[in-house]
Design a protein around this nucleic acid. Structure first.
Lengths: 387, 387
DNA sequence: CAAACTTTGTTTGTCTAGTAAACAAAGTAA
DNA sequence: TTACTTTGTTTACTAGACAAACAAAGTTTG
């Protein structure tokens, strides 16, 4: 077994600390970094020089003096590399190109006509190719690719099972890495969405965040202690199959009364059928025009969402629960019912700091999270290599 | 902000690595440690010397040669300090004295007549006092105290609320530290039980373990990635208030259909009342004599337990779920129903590696876990100090 | 405006801790 | 008896952090 508790580790850690300081508080001087982090001035100078040499930090030159020599301000060079994020949906592919801070630089969207891997994968690769073409000249070019998919993914980046695409055993990571020669990360769409909101959305800086991806089914991404939680073997987050009616309808998963049978977009559309509606857009419009039966339906779905969220709150006592994916669009009609139900059912103690929010990044939560995977593994590598 | 990414950290880490190697694979030689950990022989020698100087490691002298110079075998000196663990129950205090490996050296049990803090605390302190008296001469004496309590505890070791004792705001840690002058850790009984099973029982070496403390209510201790998970502000684990019947009976917590209303010892006794039973002992005896209504009752409770456990499995995808506390005693009568229900309701994928077990440490899970708190914080301190 | 003080960032020397390599001690095998 | 092995220590070296001194570039004050 090898587990070096060695010297270079210290440098790695300190480099990470310095880089984080620059990322979070730019522009700032070496002196400020030293003060803020507790690291010695000499150490900071040396590490900063390394970061400048590796194009990750830029010396902007002198700033305003505060009664002594002018500081040399430093900034993160977010444009020295770019990441590609992909959100593979059931009937679309969304792709973005971001800089190293995660800012969106370019964007594409493709509508999918068929689901089969044979036709989808070439389109997906073409989308990446196109985004790569838009990268401006920079030292690192495309540093990595992150892909969020609607299914179960194992640690090798193979999609084990994507029910709504009817895919099984698709080694997507291997395919993409082979083609583009950069690190590729594949993860579940809910996990990607959770990351997106954690980094760029409603969960910024919050330690314990649960992201509820309410679409056709319900998936969840759990960020505990600022890290994505993955259960045994890398699979968890099947909160959609938390049973809320022990004797309720049987679910395809084998259990009965699963949450997603009552609170997903599917559940909504099923119950909308008798009212004469077949998609979310129609329902939203009708509710907007004041159709009471539709408003009542949204209310009912909102309550069901709230029941599950109350359970989540009692289990995890998170700081924030974020509702994302398609159902987020119904915020105006379900928001009240969700909040009311949670308030009534979650433990009072756990509600003190709790916030239940809707995804700030909207339909982009998952793509941006996917891009973040690529950015963070690149930066982790850079912190390590030192040079 | 201070976050030294400094040098001494490396030593701390390596000392910890060496000590762990000794703990896990004793008796072994310096050479073996070097091989196993990847650390240089010289480094190992130096660190081992430090550990010997601080009485944590013993050089047993030469062992069997394997074709060259005889190795000097090393062992953990588990008797150079002792820890006290306390399990504060609703009608008893259980206390143990352990060595640094957690082995039980002495034991006490006190039956409580009253619940009020004024009468219980002196008895608790006296119990600790008595156990301290039994410590044989050793370099470190009593290194710490761990206490498991049936209630909500904050980060300062204050019992915020213990419903079944009717305690609120009892600063137990401060009281005990003042009295004994050693570090005291207070935690919830379910968390302590989880630790006990993780270290000494059915969860040894398992990364993701959920401990279900099924007693008067249902509490849970979650060990994720080998660490106790505590939610925002240090409170979580209220899985007992996971709702399994969204429209079920109202619970004192505000929610409806909470798991513990259907699967706890209380639920059992409530339903046993009409059958003419008032305690678990009576029920166990009757079931043993083949009373069918009692057996059926156990079956029903077992199913309810299973429903909740299936939910837990779907949420956490743990490697193992351990059922502890009073209800564990009914293993023979509820075990089958639990296993059956979980098998039917949990996601098939998550069941592959899953095991549902009963607490191996029996009634001692919590005390031993409590003692472990004291041991681990002592050892953490020793690894840090170096000398 | 000169002198005194401040702030920034580099340089210099010291210290800690880990490593590699040589070596001594103590054994086994041929 | 000679050669090889294994163990654990010693020695010399290296990386990296730090403290203190210092130089550079300001600002403030008398």
């Amino acid at each position: 077994m090898k587990q070096t508790g060695d010297l270079s580790l210290v440098k790695k850690m300190n480099t990470a600390i310095v880089l984080d300081a620059v990322l979070r508080h730019a522009p700032l001087s070496r002196a400020q970094i030293s003060e803020r982090t507790g690291l010695n001035k000499a150490t900071v100078s040396s590490l900063v020089q390394d970061l400048i040499d590796s194009h990750l930090v830029l010396d902007l030159g002198p700033g305003e003096s505060s009664g002594g020599r002018k500081p040399n301000l430093l900034q993160f060079r977010s444009r020295s590399g770019h990441a590609v994020g992909i959100d593979l949906g059931v009937n679309y592919i969304r792709g973005i190109l971001t800089d190293l801070e995660g800012c969106v630089v370019a964007e594409r969207r493709i509508a999918l006509k068929a689901h089969d891997a044979k036709s989808v994968i070439p389109q997906l690769l073409a989308c990446i190719e196109a985004l790569r073409g838009e990268i401006p000249p920079c030292p690192y070019g495309m540093v990595g690719i992150g892909i969020g998919v609607p299914g179960l993914v194992n640690e090798d980046g193979t999609i084990l099972f994507a029910p709504n695409l009817s895919w099984t055993e698709v080694p997507l990571r291997a395919i993409a890495e082979e083609r583009f020669g950069v690190p590729v990360t594949i993860d579940n769409e809910a996990n990607a969405g959770a990351q997106g909101e954690q980094r760029y959305g409603a969960g910024r800086g919050i330690a314990n965040q649960i992201y509820v991806s309410a679409g056709i089914g319900i998936g969840t991404g759990m960020i505990l202690n600022k890290e994505l939680y993955k259960g045994s073997g890398g699979f968890s987050g099947e909160l959609g199959h938390l049973s809320i009616h022990a004797d309720g309808k049987p679910c395809r998963c084998g259990n009965r009364g699963c949450w997603e049978l009552y609170a997903s977009e599917n559940a909504l559309l099923e119950q909308a059928e008798p009212l004469g509606f077949h998609d979310l857009d129609g329902l939203l419009e009708a509710a907007g025009q004041g159709r009471e039966d539709v408003v009542a339906l949204f209310e009912r779905i909102g309550e069901a969402l709230g029941v599950g969220i109350a359970n989540i709150v009692n289990v995890f006592n998170p700081d924030v629960v974020i509702i994302g994916n398609e159902m987020r669009r119904a915020e105006a009609w379900i928001g009240g019912a969700v909040q009311r139900t949670v308030a009534a059912r979650a433990l009072a103690h756990h509600q003190r700091k709790l916030k239940v929010l809707f995804a700030e990044q909207g339909e982009k939560s998952a793509v941006r999270g996917a891009a973040y995977y690529a950015i963070s593994s690149f930066l982790a590598k850079m912190k390590g290599s030192g040079a």
